[in-house]
Structures are given as structure tokens and as C-alpha cells.
């Protein structure tokens, strides 16, 4: 399969922040989400791809064209990409139809109107962004990006400014239009739900580096790092200190270290529901934050332990402000991140 986007050893320094070096290949037709917390560099990476920032080093190829290396920097317009901005980035003085006509010079009026109708904007054809709702504006941003038939569509947190009840509609629209046009999509977001809704391949970023990448289902089921587990599944990552004899001390007792990977900074990863409240007064205790009904029988108790929050199963609501906890699943020791 050809690679519509290939990034090699990309580095970009902006003030105190440094992105990379990182490499990433995106297959044709793939739907990839680059996820990470704020300040992890995912938007900088997206801007480098779009040509809005010039990297310091490294190469970027889009399709067969080399668009960035030490001697080359193709302009954003020369990259034939579509970009959907977080805040829409719409042109306030243009109507919806004018947006499409300007963005895609060869597009006929009829084709533009059909595209707007596909996006549910038939009634907004002659309206300006200020006259549209947040969801409508973001739909317009999407069809504007797709109007010139780009090979690759970049999406910068497109659901962020959209009301919850409009999100599903926008997700369906993105997926449908990208599938129809066989567009490769690259999404950046810090929202796990947004990533899982719009992508099936994930790349996790932290502090300017790619932590790990892989199919979404694999990363959700078998994260290789505690950071990924915490970010994608909301796992609590508790302190895990190595003994001299290779064992690891945690709040839930001493465990055997079964991982050779990582930066040496091990964490005990506890997924939601993998602990339960217990009457054992010797078990580690935490402060009860909230008690909620579980999906099945019983209750879910949010408990603060160390500086993390674990979600414990319970048959009855804790009576005091503290609750004792025990592990119910297999203890999982993972490195915080992988070596670069």
C-alpha cells in the first residue's frame, strides 16, 4: 500500500517547546488519530504537515511529493491538503457557497450546492458563518476542506466547538465523506471519544514525542505504556518502586516485575473496575469521592489514592469517608513511556 503521508525524523522547535524527532507513516485511506494531552505537540505536528510551520529538520512526503526537507518547504496551497480547524477558521465575510467556490476554483455552483446539501447546509447556502450554529459552521469547515478533493484531510479537534447532540451527526458526515472520496484522514485531539469515533489507528504523543502507535483496538486492549493506559482508558497509574532484587513495591503489595521495556519508571496500572472495596483494614485505603450506580449490579466508587483516582466496584456504599481497596484483576506493571 502506498503512503500518502510519510514523516521522517521530524523536528520543530518553537520557543521552549521541541517537537520530535519523530517518524510516522500513514497508509492510503487510513483514519489515524494523533492523541495526547495539551502541549504534547500534536497541533504543531499537524501544522508542520499542513505547511503552516516550517520544521527545523526532517522530511515530509505527501503522496509522491517531497514537501519538506532541509532545502524544501512547499507552501500550504501546494500540498493539496484539506484542513478542518478547531474553531472553524471560516471567512466571516463570505457565504457558505462563496467559501466553497473560493476554496475550490474549479468547482461549479451546482457541485458546490450539492456538497452543501450533503452536509445538511442546503438552507445555509447564502448565509455567513455568524448566522450559523456551531455545528453548521463546523460542517461548512469540513466541506470547505473537502471541496478541492484533497488526498489527505487534516482535522484539528473538529468536534471541540460542537454541541454534544450535534457530534454524532458530524462524526457520521466526516466518516461518510472521507470513505466516499477515499481520503486519508489525520485527526489530532486530546479527546479519547473523538479519536475513537473518527479513527481506527492511534498515535499517542507526550512531550513532543510519539509514545506508541497502533490499531485503536490493540492500544485499548494492550497498551504498552502506563501513559497510554491512563490517557486512553482512564487507568489509574500508581507508584511502583523497584527493589534491589527485581521486585516492585506498590500500594497493593510487592509484585514481580515482568517487563523489560520502558524508561525504568514503572507504574501499577489499574483499569476502572479492576479494584473493589474490602473490609480488610490492612488493605490500602483512599478517600471516597463519589458513589454511583454501576452498569450492572452493585456500585461504582471513585476513590482517591496517592494522587490518582481509581474506580472500585462495591456491593454496598462505603459508610465513612475512606474505603479500603483490593485488586480484583491481574496486577499490571507498565513503564510510563517507552525509550526513544
Amino acid at each position: 500500500m502506498s503512503l500518502p503521508v510519510a514523516i521522517q525524523n521530524l523536528q520543530c522547535t518553537r520557543g521552549a517547546f521541541r517537537l520530535g524527532p519523530l517518524s510516522l507513516d500513514v497508509a492510503a485511506g487510513a483514519r489515524i488519530a494523533i492523541v495526547g494531552p495539551s502541549g504534547s505537540g500534536k497541533t504543531t505536528l499537524l501544522r508542520c504537515l499542513a505547511g503552516l510551520e516550517r520544521p527545523d529538520h526532517g522530511t515530509i512526503r505527501i503522496g509522491d511529493a517531497l514537501v519538506d526537507d532541509d532545502a524544501t518547504h512547499a507552501s500550504p496551497a501546494e500540498r493539496h491538503l484539506g484542513l478542518v480547524f478547531q474553531d472553524g477558521g471560516l471567512w466571516p465575510h463570505m457565504t457558505a457557497l462563496q467559501h466553497l467556490k473560493f476554496a475550490a476554483p474549479g468547482l461549479s455552483k451546482q457541485a458546490a450546492e450539492e456538497l452543501l446539501a450533503r452536509a445538511g447546509l442546503a438552507d445555509q447556502t447564502h448565509q455567513r458563518p455568524a448566522q450559523m450554529s456551531g455545528g453548521e459552521a463546523q460542517r461548512l469547515g469540513l466541506v470547505r476542506a473537502l471541496a478541492p478533493n484533497p488526498q489527505v484531510l487534516l482535522l484539528d479537534e473538529p468536534l471541540r466547538s460542537v454541541d454534544v447532540h450535534q457530534r454524532d451527526g458530524l462524526v457520521l458526515l466526516v466518516r461518510t465523506l472521507c470513505d466516499e472520496r477515499q481520503v486519508t484522514s489525520i485527526l489530532v485531539t486530546h479527546d479519547r471519544d473523538e479519536a475513537l469515533a473518527l479513527a481506527d489507528y492511534l498515535a499517542v504523543m507526550r512531550a513532543g514525542q510519539l509514545v506508541e502507535q497502533g490499531p485503536a483496538i490493540e492500544l485499548l486492549q494492550r497498551p504498552r505504556t502506563a501513559f497510554t493506559a491512563a490517557f486512553l482508558r482512564g487507568a489509574a497509574c500508581l507508584a511502583a518502586n523497584r527493589d534491589g532484587d527485581g521486585r516492585v513495591r506498590t500500594a497493593f503489595g510487592t509484585l514481580a516485575a515482568d517487563t523489560g521495556e520502558g524508561d525504568g519508571d514503572l507504574r501499577l496500572v489499574v483499569f476502572p473496575g479492576e479494584v473493589a472495596t474490602t473490609d480488610d483494614a490492612n488493605a490500602p485505603a483512599g478517600r471516597v469521592l463519589a458513589t454511583l450506580p454501576a452498569d450492572g449490579d452493585g456500585l461504582r466508587v471513585r476513590v482517591a489514592i496517592e494522587d490518582q483516582i481509581v474506580i472500585a466496584r462495591a456491593d454496598t456504599a462505603p459508610t465513612g469517608t475512606t474505603a479500603h481497596l483490593c485488586l480484583t484483576g491481574r496486577p499490571r506493571l507498565l513503564p510510563w513511556s517507552l525509550p526513544r
Binding site: L52, P76, A77, F85, G88, W91, A103, A145, P148
Partner: peptide, 9 residues
């Protein structure tokens, strides 16, 4: 961002 959107056109 509206200006940046224009740079892609």
C-alpha cells in the same frame, strides 16, 4: 486561523 485556512487554498 481564517487566514491560515486561506493559505491552503
Amino acid at each position: 486561523t481564517a487566514e491560515e485556512a486561506g493559505r491552503l487554498v
